[in-house]
Design a protein around this nucleic acid. Sequence first.
DNA 1: CAATCGTGGCG
DNA 2: TCGCCAAGATT
Length: 242
Amino acid sequence: MKFSNTLIYWYLQNNRDLPWRKSKNPYFIWLSEIMLQQTRVAQGLAYYLKFTTTFPTVFDLAKADESTVLKMWQGLGYYSRARNLHFSAKQISNELNGIFPSTYEEIIKLKGIGDYTASAISSICFNEPTAVVDGNVYRVLSRYFGLNTPTNSTSGIKEFKTLAQTLIDISQPGTYNQALMDFGALHCKPQNPLCETCPFSDSCVAFEKKLTKELPVKEKKIKVRKRYFNFLVIKTEIIKQF
DNA sequence: CAATCGTGGCG
DNA sequence: TCGCCAAGATT
C-alpha cells in the first residue's frame, strides 16, 4: 500500500478532535499554526479558544492594541509571534480587505510565516499540495526511510523537504499533512514509539534495523555554559606546643 | 547560517 | 536537577 494511503487510513481512525480542525477558515488555521510553533497542543489549546472568542475575525484582531494582544499571549512564550501576528492581521485587514492570501507564494510573504506555516495553511485551506516539514515529519521520515542526515543541517532540511513533497497525496494534501504530524505526535513518538502496533512495521527501515532510537539524527550544537566556582580555603594553624 | 527566542513536560 | 524536546521564524 502507498505510504500516504496507509497514513491517511491511520489518521481517519486516530486523529485528535481539535477545534481548529472543524474549520477551513484561513484566519483560524493561521491562528492555530502560529500558536503551535514549537508549542504543544496541550499548551496552545486554551490560548486558541481565548483568541478566537475575543477576536472572531481578522478585523477584531487588527483593531486591538498590541499591548492587549501581548497580554493575551502571556505565558505562551516566543512573544515575537504575537507581534508578527498582530502586524499581519493589520496588513490583511487594511490592505487586503480582510481576505487572507490563498497561495503559498503569497502566504509566505506575511511576517511570522515561514515555509512550514505557509505550507500548512495553503494545503489545509486551499488544497495546495505543499508538504509540511516539522519535527514530527523529520522523525517519521528519517525512521521510515532510515535516513541519518542531520535534520538541522542545511542539506538535511532540503533533503527532507524534497522527500516530503514526493510523498504528498495531491488529492487531499491538507489531510495528508495533518496525518503525518499526528502520526508523529501520537504513534511514532520521540521516546517509546508504538512500533509493535505500527501500520508501517513491515516496511519501516528503522524498525527492521533496530535504529528507531538512533533516528532522527541532529547535529549537536555545543552549548557554552559558564560555571563560576568559588573556593573557600581554610587554613588551620597548628600550634605545636613542644 | 548559527544563535536566539519561552514555556512546560518528560525520563 | 538536568538536558532534550515541542505544529519554526528571524536575523
